[in-house]
Amino acid sequence: MTYSSKTKQSDISLSNCGYSKVLDIISNKWTVLVIYAMENGKIRYGEMLRRVEGISKKMLTQTVRKLERDGLVQRHIIPTVPPSVEYSLTPLGETLLQPMKELRQWGRVNYTQVVEARANYDFAYTTTEEKFRL
């Protein structure tokens, strides 16, 4: 659907936008980090917990379950006593690695400009009184 100023119909929609659907899958900060933890193949839960700085057991469990539900992660149960569990990306999950790497690279190259723009914006929109306190 194209935008028409005469009919004022929207051409951008949360329910129909492919970007918003993808962001719904990967927008959680833990999701991206957990996917990166599985980038090199199977990984055990405890190792993933150690690798992903700051994630709690509860959040890791919720994240891998969500990714498993979305078809991006598969769980492998190893019949030991007690049973061990390994996680890995599915072929579908592996297709996310390249676009995520490109976003990571964009961040490495451009994030300092974002920080500078934020500082300039914040300075421009502070009151004169606040500027003198700085």
Rank of each mutant, 00 (worst) to 15 (best):
T2R: 12
Y3S: 00
S5D: 09
S5Y: 06
T7V: 11
Q9F: 12
S10Q: 13
S10T: 13
N16V: 05
C17K: 07
K21Y: 14
L23P: 04
D24F: 14
I25F: 09
V32Y: 05
L33F: 11
V34P: 06
V34T: 14
K42V: 11
I43Q: 15
Y45M: 02
Y45A: 00
G46M: 09
L49D: 03
L49W: 05
R50H: 09
R50A: 11
K57I: 10
K57F: 04
K58N: 14
M59W: 11
Q62C: 03
T63Y: 03
R65A: 06
L67H: 07
E68S: 03
E68P: 00
V73G: 01
Q74Y: 01
H76R: 03
P79S: 14
T80M: 09
T80V: 05
P83H: 12
S84E: 07
E86M: 01
S88M: 03
T90P: 00
P91F: 02
L92K: 14
E94M: 12
T95H: 02
L96G: 00
M100E: 06
M100I: 14
E102P: 03
Q105W: 03
W106C: 08
G107R: 02
N110T: 06
Y111M: 04
Q113R: 14
E116H: 15
A119E: 11
A119N: 07
N120F: 04
Y121R: 03
Y121G: 02
A124C: 13
A124K: 15
Y125G: 02
T128L: 11
E129T: 07
E130S: 00
